[in-house]
Design a protein around this nucleic acid. Structure first.
Lengths: 245, 245
DNA sequence: GCAAAAGTGTTAGCATTACACCCATGT
DNA sequence: ACATGGGTGTAATGCTAACACTTTTGC
């Protein structure tokens, strides 16, 4: 069994057979109590004027994750996108996914606070979930399936890890954290129990000194916390979306 | 942003830049109370005489999973390998993973009963986990990492789904099913509790008519069951490996 | 004082664990 | 009879859901 992935054919055939590989990213964030996904509207080629996950061809000698993250940064953006924990969703390579040629897309997904995302009129846009899960929305290629899979991966990670802290600002309250879950799962959570669960999970948050210079609101002022390394929640949450799609 | 994954360069450069894509499979099975992994010893190219997951270049217009499964079937085998639920582990594409050229490997993993696997002297071999997790064992490329990741994925699926039934023969007893978990996790399970958990999970098994023509052993004869569709176990098991590596 | 948000206490329910115990069979 | 493996009963434990209740603030 020869496992050299380069087939022994002529150079011309080699060209035709070799698939193109691209890396894409599915970046989620929260804006205004809505879950947003970073998407790009295609302006040429097949699926023109339809939306896709930001991606780029795999050409330079870097990790797949680095290529994917680079793709979600607009060309002239001053700072790279701060998604510090991209996770691989998988490779999508159905033989008919690109009408031009065989194509493999490797997808990474991640979350970040919306202030870390640079959007511009000609680059990636934040699209609310209510839009891209509606029937009229048009994804390019198989990116509808990919976005659905990424959303499932996001929910699984929120249930089993402290990833939700990365969707909050650098300092946040427990109820702001709770809002993350409520938005993503479209559900209501009993505040008292949520508070205990987070506080009783070691490493979920770190208390921050009482720099409580918030615009004063009603009610008892909340403690503020910071995100730390992502830890497992054990036993996990088991939130479920109430009515999806 | 042009997202066409084919860069607009000359054909020669195109050759150099385009990575090679191969599909590999990590097939687990049980033989003699040992967890086995299907591996191939390389006999040419880099990493000669080292072991890799069976793989093949992506050349034909088929699903990635089909290519991966084809790679684990010996060339002249009469029947394809019966892994009816291959799951994608991920894509591995570090820039240095293949010393010859840029290379992307898409990995699928699965389980099956050992009688469904055809091995030959020149093809894939079943290697016990005790061997391939020992320090002296030599994997080709980054297949050590991939095998470790596949084992983690296997354990996660055993904990959260009824996949273990696919490692048993077509008819099996609850204690044979229990042995699957005990071998993979290298742990001991209280038989009574395991019995209840399996029986109380709808769809985990299907009772089979009392065709109880086994070689008679000591003790009360056990009921025999068949595998059905794979269902989620909720709440999941949480077995853990006692002393790994 | 009252409303609102933060945080704590308390009870009931569910699922697992540990282990005792009975069942059915071969020797 | 007895050992062996199959299967059920039961009490203790740990975690969560539900919700009452206290605390701390703005109005």
């Amino acid at each position: 069994m020869e496992l050299d992935p380069v087939p022994e054919t002529s150079e011309q055939q080699w060209n035709l057979d070799l698939p193109a590989v691209s890396c894409h990213s599915a970046i989620f964030t929260l804006v205004d109590n809505q879950l947003m996904l970073l998407l790009v509207e295609r302006n040429e080629g097949p699926f023109r004027f339809q939306w896709e996950l930001p991606g780029t061809a795999l050409t330079t000698a870097e990790d797949l994750s680095a290529t994917a993250m680079r793709a979600s940064t607009p060309p002239l953006a001053p700072l790279p996108l701060a998604v510090n924990n991209p996770r691989q969703l998988g490779a999508y390579g159905g033989p008919a996914r690109d009408p031009r040629h065989r194509s493999i897309a490797v997808i990474y997904w991640g979350v970040t606070h919306h202030t870390n995302i640079n959007t511009g009129p000609s680059g990636p846009q934040l699209v609310p979930m209510s839009e891209w899960t509606s029937d009229g929305f048009r994804f390019a290629f198989d990116h509808q399936q990919i976005a659905d899979d990424a959303l499932i991966a996001l929910k699984e990670s929120l249930n089993s890890t402290s990833l939700a802290t990365r969707l909050c600002a650098s300092a946040f309250t427990i109820s702001e954290l709770q809002r993350v879950y409520e938005v993503v799962f479209n559900t209501e959570i009993a505040a008292g129990n949520f508070h205990r669960k987070v506080q009783s999970t070691p490493g979920f948050t770190t208390a921050v000194g009482n720099q409580n210079q918030e615009p004063k609101r009603r009610g008892r002022p909340a403690q503020r916390f910071e995100a730390t390394n992502i830890v497992d929640v054990s036993p996990p949450f088991h939130f479920e979306s109430s009515q999806e799609r």
